[in-house]
Design a binder for these strands. Structure first.
Lengths: 362, 362
DNA sequence: CGATGTCATGACACCGATGTCATGCCCCTG
DNA sequence: CAGGGGCATGACATCGGTGTCATGACATCG
């Protein structure tokens, strides 16, 4: 690969002049510039970043650590791997600043993290982002003070800048919408409480009930470890069965995420319950491959992974430029409710037309 | 960040000696080594790759171009974004060689590719891999001869080394298994024929029929543009409806991928057909979030994205070390059939017990 | 017409690591 | 005790850009 010296020789100028052309630095004569540009083209010259970096003491590189679960999934609640969306968002936020992204995956082994960080440091990354598979608490080794770190889809106990989904608010928004549609008995099938989302989302659910003055019925809020092999579906079946046989059964079932909602679809159908007329189902994530493909399409709320990535990228750029270095508050990201066919509108005016419809059918 | 000179000064030795310790190069006295190591620890020294690269003329960096569709999906047949699995596989294959991975996403704009390549070249990547969202033909700008390129999940017309799924064989294996289970009337709902998978998979289907001596019935092979908004589900419904009303309706429906299979589930249920007893459904991809969560769990075949990544990484390392530079044949990757509950075994001995079961039920 | 300023360009040093070659020391051997 | 060989170490140049400063050629102005 040719160097700036090769270009200089070919164009009959000094390397410094070539550098000036490259960077539109100092003044360069019109003819000289053309000669240099021609030489660069002929040689297929591409500037070496390594040399540039040394001089400038800036790499223009950002390091990304993704904490993907290994193929043998241990916690495995999400298999759709939202990482990618986050990573895409980060790249979108960074491209305008001309940063290049390096990526390294822990491949499920947290003990590899220090080594990954060292590799990144040896490339003199200007910042690091740790991307988690699902909303969780993490604990990364300390970094040099001059290398900022942002946590995306995770947080730690040391106040490291983080960008996380606003699970509480998202769930609250969705349940609000259900209430606005006329639903009063709303069941909630939560993820395991040892997961962050298994704690925050139920909170949002209860908040929405509370502000609407609806009573909270403990029988309608259950944590289900739905994705455990064999047992998961059985637990889910049993939980739903109990709920449907309550004196006042729910008119809609909120699921901890879209994947669980998909399972709920199958179970309700096997029980002979028609959706959405007899019972509604709502999800969480807007995992489009599922939510849009299911029939009826799933009402859910958008867990905006892309936006989390964008915000994380933006936050990192701020930190690099020295802005908000002592702001330790996490950035919460929310998204819209997607109202699709899996839940009926039960508002008074609609209840009538709804009944009418049913009568017409019969 | 401290340099090798800082370490040398602190340890009272020359930079070259520090370098020797770093690389376990020439001989170093026991006491000197310890002094140097102590100095490195105290300063938190991390070697600068930029300087190293310059001297060594080797970057240890691989560039990855991912061609993710933008959020506004135009072709959009897959939304599960298998890229990530491929990228993970690549990383796994590369980590043993100590390569670091740079990544850049086209964000759906192919015109950005030349720029991305230039960025990578300026970092003097030792090789490039282009990762496609789905099996397709691509056309990348020419690279310098000394920078090898591997295409993952895609191929081009110039014989660039590529690693792609063996769609034909995968589909054949799955249909073989269906035939072995006793099925004779097998429907195939294919992806659009303008997609590679929409051509190769039907071929595999026909091959399996042929080798089993089963007649090919054109009425049972239909291309369905299932993921088009609104119209998709209608087309799918109509196609299935026609098939089920044939004189000899199919006993199992093979879908172009798992997502389509999920839609087929919903449609069959809305038609009141019981699965798998009355009709079986098979998928393609082993998109686990779907295949394992559906009820009944989906019989499908594993499109091994991870393995594609690993093979692509391996192939690239070969090319870098100069092996197989003139081998232009694509690497085909296959995977196992996952037999789950969505298809019944109809083999003679089972057909009886199956009938018995039905009679018992009634 | 000489002083001053601007423009175009180049010489040189430097960033941090490492390959090459030289140096000094100690130990062993004849 | 002189000479040879291995060991530990350092001086120096180099990789490819770019910041700093210097230089020479003109143009402008009082």
């Amino acid at each position: 690969m040719s160097t700036i010296y090769d270009v200089a020789r070919r164009a009959g100028v000094s390397p410094k002049t070539v550098s000036r052309v490259l960077n539109s630095d100092g003044p360069v004569g019109e003819k000289t510039r053309e000669a240099v540009e021609a030489a660069m083209r002929e040689l297929g010259y591409v500037r070496s970043n390594a040399a540039r970096m040394m001089r400038a003491q800036k790499s223009g590189i950002i390091g990304l650590i993704t904490g993907a679960i290994s193929t043998k999934n241990q916690p495995s609640t999400q298999q759709g791997l939202p990482d990618l969306y986050i990573v895409q968002g980060i790249q979108r936020a960074l491209e305008s600043s001309g940063m290049t992204v390096m990526i390294a995956d822990t491949a499920g082994r947290n003990d590899r993290v220090p080594h990954l960080i060292d590799t990144f440091l040896s490339h003199r990354v200007e910042g690091l982002i740790h991307v988690a598979e699902y909303h969780q608490e993490v604990n990364l080794p300390r970094l040099p003070d001059d290398t900022p770190l942002v946590l995306a889809n995770c947080f730690d106990a040391h106040g490291t800048p983080s960008v996380v989904p606003d699970d509480r608010r998202l769930q609250r928004d969705l349940v609000r919408r259900l209430i606005a549609a006329g639903h009063r008995r709303i069941a909630y099938l939560s993820l395991r409480p040892d997961m962050v989302a298994g704690r925050l989302r139920p909170q949002g659910y209860r908040e929405a009930l509370e502000e609407a003055g609806l009573p909270f019925d403990p029988a309608l809020l259950q944590h289900v470890d739905f994705d455990q092999f064999e047992i998961g579906p059985q637990l889910l079946w049993d939980t739903i069965d109990r709920m449907l046989h309550l004196d006042q059964p729910p008119t809609v079932i909120c699921s901890g995420n879209d994947q669980m909602a998909m399972m709920v679809y199958g179970i309700l159908r096997s029980m002979g319950r028609k959706m959405p007329d007899e019972i509604g189902v709502a999800g969480f994530d807007n995992y489009r491959a599922i939510a849009e493909t299911l029939y009826p399409p799933l009402t859910t709320v958008d867990l905006p992974y892309n936006a989390i990535g964008v915000r994380a990228g933006e936050r990192l750029m701020q930190l690099i430029s020295g802005v908000g270095r002592d702001d330790h508050s996490p950035v919460l990201v929310a998204g819209p409710v997607h109202w699709r066919g899996s839940v009926t509108e039960l508002r008074p005016e609609n209840v009538i037309s709804f009944k009418t419809l049913r009568e017409e059918k019969q």
